[in-house]
């Protein structure tokens, strides 16, 4: 199954992501973001980082998660490489607990493609259709 596809968008980058679970939808979304911002050819000194976020809705949680990695790249110059583990709990809020691997930019052989200003809410709607979770994500560039 294809995890995400780029949709034509006049000004920005739009992707459509589908996955067999909510957790996988978040994971594939991160890879869609990564493919949009960077081309990684190699990396050293890879370290784990733990991320914990909570939000009232799944959409806000997804925007928060992608925004966190975007912030780490643009401000802390820390490049996400892959997801080690990711779990989403649902109580009164949605809680995301993830361990992601990455490295400081200077330790990576990477070509930065574009600066994503922000992960938008525009047309974002996480849908469950049978066994599939789907959403659109538009990155403002």
């Amino acid at each position: 199954m294809k995890k995400f596809r780029i949709i034509e968008h006049t000004a920005d980058i739009a992707v459509e992501v589908s996955a067999p679970s909510l957790e996988k939808l978040f994971e594939y979304s991160v890879y869609a973001w990564l493919q949009s911002v960077a081309e990684i050819n190699g990396a050293d000194n890879i370290e784990d980082k733990s991320i914990e976020l909570s939000s009232a809705s799944r959409e806000v949680l997804l925007v928060d998660f992608l925004s966190e990695l975007n912030y780490l790249l643009n401000v802390k110059r820390w490049l996400f490489i892959n997801v080690k583990s990711l779990a989403i709990e649902e109580n009164s809020k949605y809680i995301l607990k993830a361990i992601v691997a990455g490295t400081n930019l200077e330790n990576a052989d990477v070509k930065l493609k574009t600066e994503i200003k922000a992960v938008t809410f525009h047309q974002m709607n996480i849908e469950e259709t049978g066994k599939e979770f789907k959403t659109k994500i538009i990155f403002d560039i």
């Binding site: 912030y71 200003k117 922000a118 992960v119």
Partner: peptide, 17 residues
């Protein structure tokens, strides 16, 4: 620049709620 993007980002979440 990034400062403005972050202000928009921060307040979108506040205003969604």
């Amino acid at each position: 620049r990034g400062l403005g993007y972050q202000v928009c980002d921060d307040y979108l979440k506040v205003l969604v709620e």
